[in-house]
């Protein structure tokens, strides 16, 4: 079943269209990369998917329920969010725990599951030992990790990540790709990620959504390529 479907979607800024003829489906449990040159509207595509932008034309369907039957949970890590909010006065633990705030009532007490998921998410990104530090004391790559941890702590059905490996070293990037693969394989989560590093990540992907210029040079559209069978894992 498709978690996200876009049909004949057109969108632009002011009077200038930046995306046209977007047709795609992303199924539950897929690991998908969105790629394309700078200015190809990759972030715009993600924002349309999640309902943060309304299309000029066409239809966008986002499942209202997750695989478990509950309300669809979206874990979103925007581009450079960590750098933008570097002075935010919050401990890492407090910040990652905020991913649990949308589970149930705003006023409920944090329960054992909330603490477990927060701990698990921080351990998965290798930041548990720094949990009492302030966000502002972290490096760019570390901030990126805790933003990912917050999204994971939500136990999301859909993980949307906009250039999440910015600021990470090579070893961390591969660790991250493997973590995302485990999210899809173990928990059936859907991962959609904007990236420029296709060479590295393609062994882990199910599909690539590529944004291309059309022949008249004005419009861009989506093409999807299956990765299965085309690549072999880098570490195998």
């Amino acid at each position: 079943m498709a978690l996200v479907a876009m049909e004949q979607v057109v969108f632009g800024y002011d009077d200038v269209p930046s995306l046209e003829d977007v047709n795609l489906e992303i199924g539950s449990g897929e690991f998908v990369a969105v790629t394309g040159p700078n200015g190809a509207s990759k972030t715009t595509l993600l924002r349309l998917m999640m309902g943060l932008l309304a299309p000029w034309k066409g239809r966008i369907r986002l499942a209202s329920r997750g695989a478990g039957g509950g309300k669809l949970a979206i874990g979103y890590v925007p581009q450079q969010i960590a750098a933008f909010n570097s002075g935010f006065p919050s401990s890492i633990l407090e910040f990652v725990r905020s991913g649990r705030y949308t589970k149930g009532s705003w006023l409920r007490r944090m329960n054992a599951r909330d603490h477990e998921q927060t701990e698990l998410a921080l351990k998965q990104v290798g930041m548990w030992h720094l949990r009492h530090r302030k966000i502002g004391e972290l490096s760019g790559g570390q901030k990126q990790r805790i933003c990912i941890a917050r999204a994971l702590a939500m136990e999301p059905d859909l993980l949307v990540l906009d250039e999440p490996t910015t600021g990470m070293d090579r070893e961390s990037r591969f660790g991250f790709y493997e973590l995302m693969k485990t999210q899809t394989e173990q928990y059936g989560r859907t991962v959609v990620m904007v990236t420029h590093g296709l060479d590295e990540v393609s062994p882990y992907l199910d599909r690539i959504i590529e944004l291309e210029r059309k022949e008249d040079g004005k419009w861009r559209c989506c093409t999807t390529t299956s990765c299965r069978g085309h690549f072999s894992p880098a570490h195998s």
């Binding site: 924002r47 999640m50 309902g51 943060l52 309300k71 949970a73 979206i74 874990g75 979103y76 890590v77 925007p78 969010i81 933008f84 909010n85 935010f88 919050s90 910040f95 905020s98 991913g99 705030y101 949308t102 705003w106 006023l107 939500m154 949307v160």
Partner: peptide, 22 residues
């Protein structure tokens, strides 16, 4: 007091707060 959690999320980033259903 009652809105401290949603306010924390919205103050950090409005887009992620929206996508998480606030």
């Amino acid at each position: 007091i009652l809105m401290r959690r949603p306010l924390y999320q919205m103050t950090f980033d409005e887009d992620t707060a929206k996508t998480s259903g606030l």
